[in-house]
């Protein structure tokens, strides 16, 4: 046994004497059986979750320098990309990760749809999953404005135009999400708050529900 294994055992022994944790960990993680017929496509949901964790982590790193102010947002992101050691990498992982997360959520949904896993008793799994897809897209959309580039600006302009198709209330909704008649510093502040707090919070909440439901019903066994 390696030194690390010995140390783990010694520490875990003391913990187990008090909390009996090892059986819980084994039951839920290390000795958790999955159907042998499960294909690699069953990993998409878990991979999307992994990318979400990476987004949270890299997002927190970016937050150390980001300024959600129209005057300084672009400079602050450029500073991270060109001056902070490895900043270019962290920034790139966060923006590429956003695309990967959306792709993985889509692939995950495609599998669930193709194998018809959404049927009873898993209807709410599907509905909460659809909420997660929406939240992921909104995270990517609000995050895209943050570097305050030309692309960000026009992306947000076009994106916020969409609700104008709603009858009667359309124009009002557009102004509401732009925090005014056009894309401005107010829009940036609003998108920032939504990107950093509202959507990650909502996403974590719905993910917890999603995972609890999966634990309750068990994963479906393909034939």
């Amino acid at each position: 046994m390696s030194a690390i294994a010995k140390l783990t055992k010694a520490v875990m022994g003391e913990v187990d004497d008090r909390f009996h944790l090892t059986p819980v960990i084994e039951k839920n993680l290390t000795r958790k059986w999955v159907p042998q017929t499960l294909s690699w496509a069953g990993c998409f949901g878990g991979l999307a979750f992994l990318i979400f964790l990476i987004q949270i982590f890299t997002g927190i790193l970016l937050l150390m320098y980001y300024k959600s102010d129209a005057e300084r947002a672009w400079d602050s992101v450029t500073f991270v990309k060109s001056n902070v050691p490895m900043g270019w990498l962290i920034q790139r992982i966060h923006s590429v990760g956003a695309n990967f997360m959306i792709a993985l959520v889509f692939l995950h949904m495609a599998r669930v749809a193709y194998l018809r896993i959404y049927r009873k008793p898993r209807e709410l799994h599907w509905i909460s999953g659809a909420v997660l897809l929406l939240a992921t897209c909104m995270l990517a959309f609000t995050g895209y404005l943050l570097p305050w580039t030309q692309l960000s600006y026009w992306g947000a302009k076009v994106g916020t135009e969409i609700p104008s198709a709603v009858p009667l209330l359309g124009e009002y909704i557009v102004q509401l999400i732009r925090r005014g008649p056009s894309i401005s510093g107010e829009t940036l502040g609003f998108f920032f708050a939504v990107h950093i707090w509202v959507l990650p919070g909502l996403t974590v909440l719905v993910m917890v529900l999603h995972f609890l439901m999966i634990r309750r019903t068990g994963i479906s066994r393909p034939l």
Binding site: L61, F79, N83, V84, P85, M86, G87, L89, I90
Partner: peptide, 11 residues
Amino acid sequence: FPIFSFLRLPK
């Protein structure tokens, strides 16, 4: 490595 690098002082 990149994480600890990121936490160093920027130029």
